[in-house]
Amino acid sequence: GAGASRLQAFLYGVLPQATGEMLSYSIYRWECAIRASVVMGFVGAGGLGQQMDLSMRMFAGGEVAAMLLTFLALVLLADLLSRMLRWRFA
């Protein structure tokens, strides 16, 4: 036949249009996981928050500051990457 198969229609028609949104959503979920790791750690579930809580209890201000800056950098990186991908695939 002259038409494309369902797989070809998906690969060349649907997927290119959805790639930007899929990548953006994946990065958003990664950012949510980072934030959840911090929050859940403060209530005893492990992760970044537990380490931050331990460092605060030991009055290790430098460690806490480094962790907060790393957390902020990860969130900003996720936001920047998401914005760049949306712009590229829009």
Score class of each variant (00 low, 15 high):
Q50V: 04
A9M: 03
F42L: 13
L7S: 04
A78W: 07
L54N: 00
S55A: 12
G13Y: 02
W87A: 08
L15G: 05
L11W: 04
L69G: 08
A66D: 04
A33I: 13
W87F: 13
D53L: 02
G1E: 04
G1Y: 05
A18K: 06
L72I: 09
M22P: 02
Q50F: 10
P16G: 06
A9N: 06
E21F: 09
S37G: 14
A36G: 15
D53I: 03
M52F: 04
S24N: 10
C32H: 14
G46L: 15
E21L: 12
G3P: 03
A66E: 07
E63F: 08
M22A: 10
W30L: 15
D79V: 14
I34G: 02
V38W: 11
L80H: 08
G49E: 01
L74Q: 06
Y12C: 04
V39H: 09
E31Q: 14
R88I: 02
L80E: 09
L11D: 06
L11N: 06
L23T: 03
A90Q: 13
A18H: 07
M58N: 01
L15C: 07
S37F: 13
R57D: 00
M58S: 05
Q8S: 03
L54T: 01
A65E: 09
P16F: 10
A73V: 12
V14A: 04
F71L: 12
A2G: 01
V39F: 15
V38E: 13
G49C: 05
A2C: 05
L15T: 08
M67V: 06
S5H: 08
V38K: 14
Q17L: 13
I34Q: 02
Q50R: 04
F71G: 04
A78G: 15
G1C: 04
M22S: 08
F42H: 07
V64C: 05
S37K: 12
V39E: 09
V39R: 15
G62F: 09
M40P: 03
T70G: 14
E31D: 11
M84Q: 06
M58T: 05
L23R: 04
L74G: 05
M84P: 00
V14T: 13
Y25N: 05
A78Y: 07
A9R: 04
L48Y: 11
G62P: 00
A9S: 02
R35H: 14
M40W: 15
